[in-house]
Simulated assay, not measured.
Amino acid sequence: MASSKKYNRFDAYLLKGKFRRSGFENWRYVFTGISKATGEQKTFFIELYYVNPQISPGEAVIAQKTRPKISDSELQYALAGTLAAKEAVEDEKFVPSYVLLKAGFLGENSRLFNCFYPAEKLSFVKSEQSFKLENCFFGKDFLSGKVEVTAEELLKKPELLCSAGSMKWNLHFEKTVESGTLFKSSRNVWIPLGAKTVFAGIVELNGTEYTVVPRSSSGYVSKGWGERPCENFFHISSSNLTSMISGKSLGKSCFCVEGEFEKKLTGFIQIEDRRMILSGKGLFNKYTEIHSCSQMPVDADGEKLHWCVSFHKKKLVIDIDIYCKTSRMLVRNYELPEGGRTLLEICGGGTGFGEIKVFKKVKNNLELLEHASVMDALCDFGSVDGTEGQV
């Protein structure tokens, strides 16, 4: 593809400069697989969260780690009346530093597996143009690896904040619809590198094999980095669109929307040959948007969340409505680079459904250009939560 070389530099990016002491980087891969035994479909995800690597490159420091019982030396501090001061200093210095591998699936009985490694374990293999983390490889067109968390580990380390189980994968992928940087500032960068990505391969979840088939993989790949993740996080994306006008599958279509960046969402929408970029770059690319994520009244289908976005740019209006059952959603946690025992808590699903409408303004009227149903939508909503040292 002509655009692949253009964005290759982002595949090899790793935190630089000041962000190595106070910053994060997040790689995200999402796709669907089908059980060989039952035909059941699951939405899988693999993520890499790299935070403050220069602070403790040789040891994984988890700021959320449960505080141990008071030691003899701390007892002396307490007797001297200075324990509170000592704790304040320790908490100020106690910031995360590690590379975190997240993997799991979204849907009924969602599961998340977390493995923490020292930052120095993540290395670039120049001959293969890929990153290596223990037995995991992240290439520009392939992924392979394994994550396993035992019940015994969780008992000893509740700070892992995940489930017990294992997941193994061997995948190849192609970014069929690519995007450049949608948001860039001195504090944050977000790039949905593979807004529509085709995956193929095998995933083994707790001993059960799932086949990832290109035509139904509904893949998505993105990368972001900066000082800290968005304090109020909003994301929706999908590449499984069907025209409600023609009834045909829109094979070259997809969208992804994310923020809040400076209290605003950015977006990339492609409807067949029409590409719409909502990044606010340049004087002539200004747009307005309104968005919300709200809980719907409980009905026969159970409890659902509703993501609603409306973009207005020059003569275009884009409306997106996505719904997801809360029973099929999972909470993921990310420590902030500054520490302070706070988490970005994101509630996410991979089985969202809804619609997207694209209109053209014609004088005082709106002309409908496309109205498509949306399936297999990735949908996230979250915010920063102070945990006060609790796990």
Rank of each mutant, 00 (worst) to 15 (best):
residue 362 V to F: 00
residue 233 F to Y: 15
residue 376 D to F: 02
residue 99 V to K: 01
residue 318 I to T: 13
residue 171 L to F: 00
residue 62 I to H: 05
residue 275 R to T: 15
residue 334 Y to R: 04
residue 382 G to E: 10
residue 85 A to E: 11
residue 31 F to G: 11
residue 257 V to D: 01
residue 256 C to Q: 07
residue 330 L to Y: 03
residue 367 E to M: 10
residue 23 G to V: 10
residue 229 P to Q: 13
residue 7 Y to A: 05
residue 250 L to S: 06
residue 299 D to P: 12
residue 340 G to N: 08
residue 371 H to K: 06
residue 192 P to T: 11
residue 131 F to D: 10
residue 314 K to N: 12
residue 378 L to R: 03
residue 155 L to G: 13
residue 16 K to V: 09
residue 92 E to Q: 06
residue 329 M to I: 04
residue 143 L to Y: 04
residue 8 N to E: 14
residue 43 T to V: 14
residue 12 A to S: 13
residue 291 H to Q: 04
residue 100 L to K: 14
residue 81 G to W: 00
residue 388 E to F: 09
residue 66 T to F: 06
residue 233 F to W: 15
residue 363 K to Y: 01
residue 18 K to I: 07
residue 378 L to P: 01
residue 201 G to D: 09
residue 237 S to D: 00
residue 351 T to M: 04
residue 20 R to D: 06
residue 187 R to S: 14
residue 229 P to I: 06
residue 368 L to H: 03
residue 14 L to D: 07
residue 335 E to R: 00
residue 247 G to V: 10
residue 54 Q to M: 10
residue 148 E to H: 02
residue 332 R to V: 15
residue 132 K to H: 05
residue 371 H to W: 04
residue 269 I to H: 00
residue 27 W to G: 09
residue 127 S to F: 03
residue 326 T to G: 01
residue 62 I to C: 07
residue 223 K to G: 13
residue 85 A to Q: 08
residue 331 V to A: 11
residue 323 Y to E: 15
residue 324 C to A: 15
residue 222 S to L: 08
residue 282 G to S: 11
residue 117 Y to I: 07
residue 365 N to P: 02
residue 246 S to V: 03
residue 80 A to L: 12
residue 306 H to K: 11
residue 2 A to N: 13
residue 283 L to N: 10
residue 350 G to Q: 05
residue 114 N to I: 12
residue 122 L to Q: 07
residue 313 K to F: 06
residue 301 D to H: 05
residue 289 E to P: 00
residue 230 C to W: 01
residue 135 N to T: 12
residue 119 A to I: 09
residue 115 C to I: 15
residue 40 E to I: 07
residue 201 G to T: 09
residue 117 Y to H: 15
residue 345 E to T: 15
residue 102 K to A: 12
residue 216 S to F: 07
residue 130 S to K: 06
residue 374 V to S: 06
residue 210 Y to H: 04
residue 210 Y to C: 08
residue 388 E to M: 12
residue 221 V to D: 01
residue 282 G to W: 03
residue 222 S to Y: 03
residue 332 R to T: 15
residue 95 V to T: 15
residue 216 S to L: 11
residue 254 C to K: 04
residue 76 Q to C: 06
residue 148 E to Q: 13
residue 293 C to A: 11
residue 268 F to D: 03
residue 12 A to E: 14
residue 216 S to E: 12
residue 156 K to C: 14
residue 159 E to C: 05
residue 66 T to D: 08
residue 203 V to W: 02
residue 70 I to Y: 02
residue 343 L to G: 08
residue 78 A to R: 09
residue 257 V to P: 01
residue 213 V to A: 05
residue 111 R to K: 15
residue 274 R to S: 10
residue 56 S to H: 09
residue 265 L to M: 04
residue 35 S to K: 02
residue 96 P to G: 15
residue 348 G to K: 10
residue 93 K to C: 10
residue 144 S to T: 15
residue 133 L to P: 02
residue 15 L to Q: 07
residue 310 S to I: 10
residue 258 E to C: 11
